[in-house]
Amino acid sequence: MKSFLTAIVKAFKLFISYQKTNLSAGMEYRAAFFTQVFAMILNNSAFIIFWMILFDRVGTIEGYDFQAVMFLWALAAVGFGIAAVFFGNSTYLSRIIYNGELDVYLLHPKPVLPNLLMSRTHVSGWGDLSYGIILFLFTQDTSISHLFLFGIFSLLFALILVSLRVMYHSITFFMGNAEELAARSSDAIISFTLYPGTLFKGPVLLVLHTLIPAAFAAWIPYEIIKNFDLTKLLLLIGADFVIASIAYGVFHLGLRSYESGNRMGARL
C-alpha cells in the first residue's frame, strides 16, 4: 500500500514537472497560442449559431434541445482540452514509433506509455478547456452535483479519446504508418459526439459503441446527467476502463514487437 502511494506521488510529481516544462515551452510562442485559441473560439461559435438557428426553426430534435447539444459541446471541448494539454503526445504516437523516438522513453525509468503521452502539450488545449467550462457555466445547470458529474465525464471523455488514439496509432507497430487513420478516427469520434446520440440508429450504433465509442464518451454521460442513475454511471466507468485497457494492451503488444526489432521498416 505504501509503495503504491509513493508511486502515485512520484507519478504526480512527474506530471507536474512535465506540465511546468510544457507550459514554459508553450509560452515561448504566445502569439501562436492566442491565434489558435481565437480560431478555436470562432470555429465553435459558428457552430453554436448554427444550432441556435436550427433549433429556432425546428424545436427539439429526437429529444435533444439547444441546451442538450450545448452540453455535448461543452463536454467535448473540455475533454478534448484535457487530452491536448495533459496527453499531447497522443496525436504524435505514430510518428514517434516510426522515427524510432520511442527509444528515448524506453530509456527512462518510468512506465513508457504515460511518460510518453504526458511529455508534450498542445498549449491551445487550454483554450478548449476554458471555452468548454465557460460554455457549461452559461448554458447548463450549475448545481454542485452537475458540476461534479461534468468534471468526471470530461475526464472520462479525455480517457476515451486518448485510448482511441493510442489504439489506432499502435497499428503503426504492426503495419506501417497509421497516422492518417488514427487522426481520422479521432476526428470522427469528436464529430459524432457533437450531435445528438439519438440521431443514429441500426448497425451504425454498434460502431459507435465499439470502433468509435462516441456513445460512451458523450451520449451516455448526457443521459446520466439528465436522469441520474448510479448503476448506469458505474457501468459507464467500467466500459471506459475496458476501452482504456484494450488500448493499453494493444500498445504493449506493439511495444513487444518493437522490442523484438522485427517491426516493419526497422532501421538498424
Binding site: L54, V58, I61, E62, E180, L181, R184, D187, A188, S191, F192, Y195, P196, T198, L199, F200, K201, V204
Partner: peptide, 21 residues
C-alpha cells in the same frame, strides 16, 4: 481515400440529423 471515408462520416451525420428533423 482515408479523407474521403471521413467525408462519408460527415455526410452520414448530416443525413441522420436531417432525417430526424
Amino acid at each position: 481515400l482515408l479523407r474521403n471515408i471521413f467525408f462519408i462520416i460527415i455526410f452520414y451525420i448530416f443525413y441522420s440529423l436531417w432525417s430526424a428533423i
